[in-house]
Each structure stands twice: as C-alpha cells, then as structure tokens.
Design a protein around this nucleic acid. Structure first.
Lengths: 200, 200
DNA sequence: CATAAAACATACTAGTCGGTATTTTTTTAT
DNA sequence: ATAAAAAAATACCGACTAGTATGTTTTATG
C-alpha cells in the first residue's frame, strides 16, 4: 500500500478506536496501551503518529467530535423551512435517534467538557470551537425566523441559542442517571413548550 | 478526645479534602494517596474508615454534594413569594454568587454525572437522588404558582422543571470553556425570557 | 538493486494505582 | 494498672501509567 495512504489509515484507526474508548470509559482512564490494543497495533506505532496522548485528545475533539456535532446538530439547522419547526425537529429528532448505547454514555463533547476542559487549554479551545459553531448556526436560524416573521423579535437570538444548547447538553448528562427515557420525554415537552412561546 | 468524636472528625477531614480534590481534578485521577496526603494522614487511616475508594465516592455525593445542591438550589425554592421571581432569583442568584474557582470547575454534581455515572450503579443512584429532590422542589413551586394564578396552567410542571435543571447544569459545564462570564449572561437572559413566558 | 526514510515492534523506565497485611500508637473500659 | 479495641502508621503487592530508546520491517526513490 502507498505509504501516505497507509499512514492516514492507521491514524484513522487510532482515532476511531480512541474515540470509542474515550466515549465509553472517559479520557483519563483510557490508556494509550488500551487504545493500541484495540487497534491491534503497538505503542511504538502510536508514538510514531502522535507526539503525546494530549495531541490525540485534541485531534479526537477537533475532528471526530466536531464532525459528530456538526452532522447531528448543526447541519440540519441550515435546511429550509419554518425556523421553529426546524429547531424542534433537530433537537427532538436527535434525541429520538440515539441508541441505548448513546443514551447511557451521554454526549461525547459534554463528557470531554466536564472531564478535562478545566485542565488543559488545548482541550478548552478545541471544544469551544464546536460550541461557537453550533451557537452561530442557531443564531443564524433564529434571526432568519425573526426576519421571516415566524419568531418574536423581542428575544435575543444569542441568549436563546445558549439556553437551547445548555439544556440539550444538560439533559444528555442527566439521562445517564436513569434507565428509561422519561427524562428525555420531559425534556422534549419542555423544549416544545419553550419553542411554542417563541412563535410570532 | 473521645474516640467516636475523633473518628467522625477524621472522616469529615477525609470527606472535605477528597471533595475538594475530586472537584478540582476529577474523581478517577484523584488517588487515595493524594487525598491522604492532603489530610496529612496515611493510607492506613483511610482504609480503616472506608472499605474502598468507591465507598468514599458515594459518601461524598450523598453528603457533601447533596447538601451543596440543597443549600444553593433547593432550599431557596421553598421560601415565600412570587413563584417566578423565586425561580429567577434562585437560578440567576446562584450563578452570580459563584467565585472564579467555582466557575472554572463547573458543578461538582454535573462533573460526577458526566465522569462516572455510567460506570457504577452506586454513583448513579446517589446522584439521581439529588436530581429527584431538586425536581420535586421545582415541581412543587411551579404548581404553587399555578394555583396562585401567577404561572400559566398550560405548562407541565415536570417538563419545565427538567428543562430548567438541564439548562442550568449544561451551562455550568459550557462556562468552563470560556474565560469570561458572557456565556453566563447569555444564559441568564435566556432564562429570564423563558420565565417571562410562563407568566400568567 | 541499493539506500534512505517511513511505519511499526519490542523492551524498558520510573512512577502511580487501589488495596492488603502487619505493626505501632492511642484511647477506652474495667 | 491492664487488657481490649479503635485509630493510625509502615511497608508492601501486582497491575497499570505515559513516555522513551532502540530495534526491525516495509515502502519510495535514485
């Protein structure tokens, strides 16, 4: 196989396996050994491609996690249609699409934020970038709704955006404590209510 | 000193120091050694009072953290006065009261939830108890508001309660990514707006 | 085909982890 | 005073940690 291609394939393998392990067991307690055991490669291979575990952590965030949030929560916001319906469909729809596995382990981004964001600026910056991208998409959509007359103009889009993101990330954590979806249903009722009140 | 008193003092010391370290550095990466170094006692003393680190973790949650949430977010909800004002004062007031230290490290409960709730049922149960107590207080207050005619009766108190808790815990995490309070101000605007829309 | 570089493997370090076994010190009850 | 029990200290275990040093194999290029 071509060298460059092989290298990229290996890095992708490491990224995939480490994301999975970070998601299931947390960042700190997932050792480089465990990751490389999952890839069926060795530690030598790891330190050939990454200079440290920290570098891997940042890359997992800025590629894998960023992409995941973008696909699930940001991209749908740029579609056409009624702004409030789009919001409800995106937030509720995402929750409904989660598997038991996803529900039990919460949001990968939120897990990172709460586990390591206060320990290393590099993580902080990479995570902040995702939130900012998400916030920008929400603000854009809310402003569009206001311009189109479907959303009341008395609200500050930025404030609503932060409140929406906060509640979503919050409930993703809280769901971990329960063994059923009641809490998610309550959240979705709460969300629906909130959005209704934004209707012009 | 009386034996029983001394024992309780030592346990309290261990609880205090471990809470602080868990809060600052996380549960998993805070070792028993580090905790006991902070107490200026030894590992032998620790395992005399606790049978495992897990037992300590559960006790930190069900005493220290439970009490902290109760004092800051639950107890104030049972005071007299307009329900919506009480809600705004409690949620916003709490955020405003946080020190830089508190803001940088997020919510101790939320940190535990996101770090270890999916790994051990004992933690899950202890944490769930806090959320349930909080939720019950919110539901109680919202129902009172409805009865008194200050809150619209078209909303489901349980759903609003979960949405309020989720957003609060969510923003406590997200704040970690920033070095200023802008995000908290946005959250508080969003909250204020939300509560206004519940007004009868 | 030779040579260099990239990709990966092996073996190791010094330190940390939760937990245990054993001993010493302190306190309490008689 | 003394024996029993509680509190705490000391020393240790095997497993694990991030990272390094030094090999070997594979691939690209002259």
């Amino acid at each position: 196989m071509e060298q460059r291609q092989k290298s990229e394939l290996t890095k992708a393998l490491i990224l995939n396996e480490s994301f999975k392990l970070f998601y299931e067991n947390g960042f700190k307690t997932t050792s480089v050994d465990k990751i490389m055991k999952a890839t069926k490669l060795t530690k030598g291979a790891f330190y050939h491609h990454y200079k440290s575990k920290k570098e891997l952590g940042v890359e997992v965030i800025s590629t894998h996690i960023q992409k995941r949030v973008y696909e699930g929560m940001i991209k749908p916001l740029y579609e056409e249609g009624n702004a409030l319906e789009l919001l409800e469909n995106t937030f509720s729809g995402r929750l409904k699409s989660f598997s038991i596995y996803d529900k039990a382990h919460g949001c990968p981004m939120n897990n990172f934020i709460n586990e390591i964001a206060d320990e290393e600026q590099a993580y902080q910056i990479a995570l902040k970038r995702i939130i900012e991208e998400w916030k920008a998409a929400l603000v854009h959509l809310l402003e569009r709704g206001q311009q189109e007359g479907s959303i009341i103009t008395t609200i500050a889009p930025k404030a609503v955006a932060i409140y929406l993101i906060s509640a979503f990330e919050g409930v993703r954590g809280i769901r971990k404590l329960y063994n059923d979806d009641q809490i998610l249903n309550d959240y979705m009722s709460g969300l629906s209510l909130y959005l209704t009140q934004l209707k012009a």
